[in-house]
């Protein structure tokens, strides 16, 4: 049993807190559909790639401990770099919840006459169990809508570092690909964080500052 990706991402998008930040994988159907469900809201950093999404989310959560951070990753990406789970377990930031779209295949590469290429979660590997073994305080592996509803409620009603592995049906993207690249996505997210937090992330060249007229006194 497994959930439909488009549907469960829609349900998650409708429930995420207005003031949270999201670190998401930036290519593939997860990113396209998440962007669609969230109207490309700049609170999402579509910047993660294979093997680095959770690591970046941990760094973001540690940098902004007062801000809830949601991470969207895929099973192939988590499998590529398990050291991310070690870092997540060691640091266990209370403000981080990871949702994994675990469809058991390498969806983004397409498929041929023999079907899709399976990931290890289709057979032997239990990502939630690995995350638990790495010390992540709360981990769960789910595959039904009722479980999803309950886990979304839990995720956003408490502060506890959590890893929610969502067994998901493989399937084509229901929406068109996104048109932006990582550079544009970065600036959009950074400017949003600067406004949200009242901070400066990128600098201004000192020579340019020197062009400003100094105030008297």
């Amino acid at each position: 049993m497994a959930l439909d990706r488009y549907d469960w991402l829609s349900r998650l998008a409708s429930r995420i807190p207005e003031d949270c930040l999201v670190m998401s994988t930036y290519i593939g159907a997860v990113s396209f559909e998440w962007a669609h469900h969230t109207n490309e809201h700049p609170r999402t950093a579509h910047l993660g790639q294979m093997g680095d999404v959770i690591g970046m989310a941990v760094g973001l959560a540690l940098a902004l401990p007062h801000r809830r951070v949601v991470c969207l990753d895929g099973d192939g990406s988590v499998l590529m770099e398990l050291a991310q789970l070690v870092a997540m377990g060691e640091q266990s930031p209370d403000n981080l919840v990871v949702f994994v779209v675990d469809n058991g295949v390498y969806e983004s590469i397409g498929w041929g006459e023999h079907g899709r290429r399976a990931t290890a979660t289709a057979t032997t590997v239990d990502l939630a169990a690995i995350a638990a073994a790495c010390g992540v305080p709360y981990t769960v592996d789910i595959s039904t809508e009722d479980q999803l509803v309950a886990e979304i409620d839990l995720a956003f009603s408490r502060n506890l570092c959590s890893f929610v592995n969502v067994r998901t049906e493989p399937g084509h993207s229901h929406v068109q690909p996104r048109r932006t690249d990582g550079i544009e996505d970065k600036y959009r997210f950074v400017r949003y964080v600067e406004r949200l937090e009242g901070i400066r992330i990128t600098g201004v060249p000192p020579q340019d500052i020197g062009l400003m007229k100094k105030k008297d006194g």
Partner: peptide
Amino acid sequence: GAAFSMCAGAWLGG
């Protein structure tokens, strides 16, 4: 690798 990813995520948070 995980260390670099965390550094990058932290930069995005200021």
